[in-house]
């Protein structure tokens, strides 16, 4: 059917450019689709509704926390302490590799069971591989008169909460 075109000069060339056009279009579309698919895949993998406990949690009334006690709130991995100067909350997650530390009442220090880091009750590193002190967390009093701790909000070391 294309016998007629055979003889015409330029026809073949035009056919070739047309072919190049479709080739380019096809490959670019495939390329874009591939890149888009990758982006979409990333988007798909990113959950948009999380089922994680809220970072802010409530404790009892201030009186319910015994002065001088170090209390580990296990659900949120936070030490809550009450000393004469006020309340403080320290993260219980070791700054080395994320193990949950334990309070050693005999030594009055916090120790990590994984690699032997030890922290003071101020969060300072006493020994071991931990690179940073344990972070201090925001402590507040709610309107209903309860102590609230926010694990997402770090405060400067030594920021105690006074009633």
């Amino acid at each position: 059917m294309s016998n007629k075109d055979e003889g015409r000069p330029g026809e073949g060339l035009r056919a070739i450019t047309r072919r190049r056009f479709f080739q380019t279009a096809g490959f670019s579309a495939c390329g874009i689709a591939a890149v888009g698919a990758a982006a979409l895949g990333e988007n798909f993998l990113e959950p948009r509704a999380l089922f994680e406990p809220p970072t802010r949690f409530l404790l009892g009334a201030p009186e319910s926390i015994t002065p001088g006690a170090v209390y580990l709130e296990e659900a949120h991995q936070v030490y809550v302490m009450r000393f004469a100067e006020g309340f403080r909350a320290l993260s219980a997650v070791c700054t080395h590799l994320g193990c949950i530390t334990r309070y050693q009442p005999d030594d009055k220090c916090i120790a990590c069971p994984c690699h032997g880091s030890r922290f003071s009750l101020d969060g300072e590193v006493l020994e071991g591989p931990a690179p940073r002190p344990l972070p201090w967390l925001r402590v507040e009093l709610t309107a209903s008169g309860r102590i609230a701790v926010n694990t997402a909000e770090e405060v400067a070391l030594g920021t105690v909460f006074k009633l």
Partner: peptide, 29 residues
């Protein structure tokens, strides 16, 4: 030449279907 002709047609199909493919896949996002 016949082969070339059909090959041209193939590439045209490929181009068109690829673009369509891209368009359709973009709707859901």
């Amino acid at each position: 030449l016949n082969e070339k002709e059909s090959s041209n047609r193939l590439w045209r199909w490929f181009g068109v279907s690829s673009v369509l493919f891209l368009v359709v896949m973009a709707i859901s996002p």
